[in-house]
Design a protein around this nucleic acid. Structure first.
Lengths: 340, 340
DNA sequence: TTGAAAGCGGTACCAC
DNA sequence: GTGGTACCGCTTTCAA
């Protein structure tokens, strides 16, 4: 079986290529099954021939001619991260329902990689991009905007970009929620271990923590320890031991990875939660329920984040009016690690 | 900034489009930096103009004309699975080093979805496909083969497919290894909880388990409980309690998901490992090290699996000779769950 | 309803 | 070394 083109179908069906093109692109209205200016019988015949010959549209040709590809790109920072892996599914489903194909490319939390992926993606005549910005990723994202490709920022905000859509979590609220949960249980010496990643998300979670502590009258207890993405292991071990020594009662860990690191350190050193140290983590993972004492954590509305980002992008692509910035609310999943 | 084409560059640089095409496609040899029949000064000028104008090759046009896209597709069964997420990175890196772009599309363990992804992928003039077969996925995979697109089966074998490359784990060996590890510790009543997924991988792990048990003289202890992918939770709870009641000493869990389910059941019911039940799991996860008593597990050589699959695919695409079936060896990561 | 023909932006082949 | 030009397969006027 070799490449079957629209011409082959046209010849075999005894019609022009135009007709075949019409038929192949016809979405069927909810009534019977047509919507194009082609006689039903002709359409049926074309369809039959196409199927018989195993015709498959050449996306490259279609995209070249029409300038559209019905394809959107999604660039998460780490595809193996449960947060993005979960969101990906919702994005795919929603995109599919709009007739878009989705291409994934991970930036691995690197601006250079983001730039490379963006180049590839732009070369493919993509209709729009959903991207989670990384530190220093501004130029790469600007490229898309300058090429007139609609961009939606997902999960992380980035200032100074014009005409971009945004679908974010209310991270300040998330920080407050986690902190208030611990405060509500009666903990007072609550601290954070955070990343120097320089992304909006984490900064706002820190902000929420601070606000909640202030409001509760424990401003003097506010303390955030910073580590670096990638080699956090040693730092975290040090922080945790130090915290215990200083009588810290609880920690808010604003990402899954820093939480996993912390749990590892605690396990190695026989530090029990919540007895020795109460915890609230972030995002979902099997680890939270399987850990000795299940871990309380902030949950993001993955489905909504995924679906909304596609919706916003679609509106931008089709130039339809609609919300362009959407902020969603987190929720808290309780667990033994926050008990008192 | 609007679309800049090769023509714009040609005009601006005062050369023909042919020259621009040459220059844009020139890979630089390790010496200075050319490899094409273009005078260096001309090449430099073209390059400068291209950069100034912000030229970006239109992949659709290139692919349409040349019939190649320098793009390969990877279709795992579940992108959020640590196994595939890990492999993806190695695939991307290796593919990149060969000058390929990678497109991902998950089949979600569904033949229908695999078919849809395959259609999309074939429409894109893809040069080759790396796919993890799902049950009933034969027709979808045949499509690619019939379209003369090279196919490499990753992780799972599927019989009756001609001219496909294969990069697999020695799953019989993995089953033996896990079982022998437990036998070596002195366990005798060793059983398995497995899936009725109907994929080669799991069947062979079962085979390895049986062989090892037989060789050790415990043939009469061989017992495999089967559950179904998706709704294993209740089954597993039942199996585990039943196993305990029957005096089973150890379980070999041949996938991450069945292992995670088992751990959840054990935690809920206060069943301790290895005291009440010894375990050997499969694949990697943070869970294994963070679980109360760390979990011994079989590890697959992700890097090799990923790199080899790209290599095999490349050889097939370029019609270069080389191994077309590669079987890699697993290893075992010990953990407290297998102690005695 | 239908069809002819003009490109979309590159690449490949050939001539100079 | 360099340039001219016929396509790749499809969509999209425009006319019939």
């Amino acid at each position: 079986m070799k490449k079957v083109t629209i011409k082959d179908v046209a010849r075999e069906a005894g019609v022009s290529v135009t007709l075949v093109s019409f038929v192949m692109n016809a979405k069927m209205g909810k009534d019977g099954r047509l919507d194009c200016p082609v006689k039903p019988e002709t359409a049926a015949r074309v369809l039959k021939v196409a199927r018989k010959l195993g015709y498959r549209r050449n996306a490259a040709a279609a995209s070249l001619r029409s300038g559209r590809s019905n394809t959107i790109a999604v660039i998460p920072t780490d595809i193996s991260n449960k947060f993005f892996a979960g969101i990906s599914r919702y994005i795919e489903d929603k995109a599919f329902s709009y007739g878009y194909t989705v291409l994934f490319g991970s930036s691995e939390e690197s601006a250079e990689r983001l730039d490379a992926v963006m180049d590839t993606v732009l070369a493919y005549n993509i209709d729009g991009v959903i991207v989670a910005p990384v530190q220093g990723g501004m130029p790469a994202i600007s490229k898309a905007i300058n090429s007139n490709i609609p961009v939606v920022l997902l999960d992380r905000d980035m200032e100074g970009l014009e005409d971009v859509g945004k679908v974010l979590l209310d991270d300040v609220e998330a920080g407050k929620m986690a902190t208030n949960h611990l405060l509500g249980k009666g903990y007072k010496k609550i601290e954070m271990i955070s990343y120097t990643l320089g992304i909006s998300t984490i900064k706002e979670r820190e902000e929420g923590y601070k606000v909640a502590m202030k409001e509760a009258g424990f401003e003097e207890n506010i303390n955030i320890q910073y580590t670096t993405y990638g080699d956090a292991k040693a730092d975290v071990a040090h922080f945790v031991k130090d915290a215990i020594a200083r009588g810290v009662e609880a920690l808010f860990l604003p990402t899954y990875s820093v939480c996993a690191q912390t749990l590892a350190v605690m396990k190695e050193n026989g530090i029990k939660t919540p007895k020795d140290l109460a915890l609230v983590g972030f995002d979902e993972s099997d680890v939270y329920s399987l850990y000795e004492n299940s871990v309380a954590h902030i949950v993001q509305p993955l489905r909504e984040l995924g679906e909304k980002s596609v919706q916003v992008l679609r509106n931008m692509i089709e130039k339809e009016p609609g919300e362009t910035t959407i902020i969603l609310k987190p929720s808290l999943m309780d667990g033994g690690s926050a008990d008192k």
